[in-house]
Amino acid sequence: MTERIIIAGSGGQGIMLLGKILSEAAMRENKFVTWLPAYGAEVRGGTSHCMVVISDKEIGSPNIEKADSLIIMNGPSLMRFKKRIKERGLLIINSSLASKYKNIKLNVLEQPFSDIAVGLGNIKVANMLALGLFLAKKKVVSLKSVSEVIQAIAPDDKKALVEINKKALEEGSGLK
């Protein structure tokens, strides 16, 4: 099993964090994992992305040409990455910030993560909703491991945010 995931959105949406939480959970489950950030001269309001590879074998390239799964959190990222996915790959789109997208060769799931996050009380947990939905479809790591990571990495002064992040993860995993 090797799962190659590209996560993209705009700066401030917790794109890197989503990738790091997923990677940390994979490490805790003793899987091989690599996380590669975009480290270019990105501009405010532009796209931000990271690439995560999770495998039960040693990983060669941390760079992903064609992903098994794409998690897209805004419109510009969809434009930039829509060709970087394999046929029949899983494409998760934050429909709050991206227009409708059709591609019969892909498994496209559109959910208004940002709107749902606002409903939960914090727009910033849109990333955890998307991660929840991704893990419901591709069980590369367990929701339990991810919850543990959220608990563990929250700094002392941010512990209040742990519950809403866990809630968003749970809620995301129940989306269709």
């Binding site: 490490m27 091989f32 994992v33 690599t34 996380w35 590669l36 950030p37 990983i59 941390p62």
Partner: peptide, 10 residues
């Protein structure tokens, strides 16, 4: 190199 420096791994 840039990839090796930037990437995270266990």
């Amino acid at each position: 190199d840039g990839i090796l420096g930037q990437m995270m791994e266990p």
